[in-house]
Design a protein around this nucleic acid. Structure first.
Lengths: 193, 193, 193, 193
DNA sequence: TATGAATGAGAGTTCATTCAT
DNA sequence: GATGAATGAACTCTCATTCAT
């Protein structure tokens, strides 16, 4: 087989387009075309556009979580972990600009039905972050805050900066350059004991 | 006149529906129906759906800005101002739950054309917040941070919490009760000198 | 009164716009704007858009008829009359390009209801031309042809050339320059005894 | 397969309705219904209503041209060719009344954008007629006239008669019976050496 | 007379989804 | 598994017309 398997091509095409254009501006035809796949095949692998979108988001979240947990395991000092976790979410604009945007877009899905499903995914991710925070609190590495709320706050901060950084002006470039660092600084001050 | 003027009814209906369901899930018919107005009238007052949406968002932002600047003028201590500004953005879920959601939804518009217009509005708002922060920095009330970036971070934090708080479970209720307070605490720690 | 009366301004604006853009592409708003009149006034003078259009066409036809009959009365030789009549229909592109187009557009109204009314007007005009032809036949100035059919044929010829001449290329310019002459030549050969 | 293929059904339905009612009075829904096809299918085969209309017209023109060129090849005497060409354009009201009307309606499209495209098609057709005329002039079969102008004149004549003949009164019936013959006579006199 | 805010039916078009091949 | 022709509900927007002032 000279091409990656169909399923992967579809998800990858979905990731790119959903991130660049959002959910509604991306048509199944667009995804099929970019993935070099027939529309029929899209529906062979995913029951609906919603499910494809959810799969794309889920995958992106999971990749981020795996990376974050990896960092935790290494026993670094708290502020360093924070910096790296944020950097990971913020996500190497160099390598994967689309994913960073995709995650930021997850915040406010416009279709109510989709929202319910997405917010579950988001909660899962936030819960995972919250657990990490809770552990850091128990260890005395950060001050006692509401873990889930702090998790959402961190994700919100990162999302806002990410979306701003995706634009094409001087500010965006500055954010891309120093955003992760500044963000980590803010987060560390917000959480330090 | 027994009813509020048409224009107000339209904007109000738009505010509610856009906030509840997002941009795409809200049809012009829905707005017309809720506003008890003909579709034609919608287009009498607004050139397009985009323009109506922008008007709704602009109004919401402006109201928030006015309130925030009011607080600044009163010369309260920095952490108190921060708390109140966030509370204002967070926005009396009791009184206007929709507006709070609306502003949070502004983050990731799905239509590229709309995005350009919206991000300009958002930038305007963020700039205003940034100015407030810059002044506080000059006054030594908060530590030196990148004002615009910090502004976006604050808005992102507040947006994330707001959206989570709009759901209908126990967590949401908890966030609605103590979210503004916790958020202000986080923000204050992030920014204190 | 410094302006021509309202009714005239309306008809004139209608003539220009209907000729330039056709019936459907011309909105009542456009006419009102060009005539510097309120929409309400349009409906004060004309029951409907159809009626306004018919009035515009009727006026244009009548002007042409008056001119044609004038020529008949002068007792010129048949081919000369023909030339002048065609020139008149063809209509001084220099002076009134719109009217020439307007009359040509009358051929195929797209609304069935409008068509019935328009074709009556057109028939009236064709009948008048036919009478002129019939008289010329009786006088032996032209050969015996079916007068009404010939009238329609002449109008069709002139209409086709007129519309082609209204375009903006070299051919159109040539048609504008020598169209009337060539047309008269063709008509004269077609009808000479 | 018990029905003709979809594309053909669509074009045929378009031909009938556009000819009967004109462009604007014919809705995509009407065409879909007559063709027993879904609206979606219309857009599967044609990018827009304009394109469908142009396809319908193009086909009609091409059929006429093929027939006319066929006649030329048979080496008949000039007046006979003229008669037959006109008969062909005039076009068997018995067999295809709609097409005859359709072609006549092409003269004055009401939408400016559509006009540009249509006039190109019309020019192509007129050019083809003009070439036939030019050849006849070279052969001395007809007198030297401006070929393109004469072509437009012939088409205009035929169009006018055709539209008149499509009505439902005694005159129309007469035109249908003897129109082609009379028209050929007129044309022949106009062009004979 | 004159106005223009208000109306709403209907237009063209899109697009997620289905299903016979 | 794979295809893409076919579907039709739902969308935004237009515009001739009305009528209270």
């Amino acid at each position: 087989m000279s091409q990656p398997v169909m399923l992967e091509r579809i998800v990858e095409a979905g990731r790119k387009l959903f991130a660049r254009q959002g959910f509604h501006a991306t048509g199944m035809r667009d995804i099929a075309k970019l993935a070099q796949v027939s529309i029929g095949s899209l529906y062979h692998y995913f029951r609906s556009k919603d499910e494809l979108f959810l799969a794309v988001v889920r995958k992106a979240f999971e990749e981020r979580l795996v990376q974050a947990r990896e960092l935790m395991r290494q026993g670094l000092p708290a502020p360093e972990i924070l910096r790296q976790v944020l950097t990971v979410y913020f996500a190497g604009f160099a390598k994967e600009p689309e994913t960073a945007q995709l995650l930021s877009r997850v915040w406010a899905p416009e279709d109510p039905a989709l929202w319910r499903k997405l917010s579950a995914l988001l909660e899962e991710y936030a819960q995972a972050i919250a657990e990490i925070l809770a552990e850091a609190i128990r260890a005395g590495a950060i001050r006692p805050v509401h873990p889930l709320l702090a998790a959402y706050a961190l994700l919100g901060m990162a999302g806002a900066i990410t979306l701003r950084a995706a634009q094409k002006d001087a500010v965006a470039e500055e954010f891309r350059r120093s955003g992760a660092e500044e963000l980590a600084e803010l987060a560390w001050h917000a959480l330090r004991p």
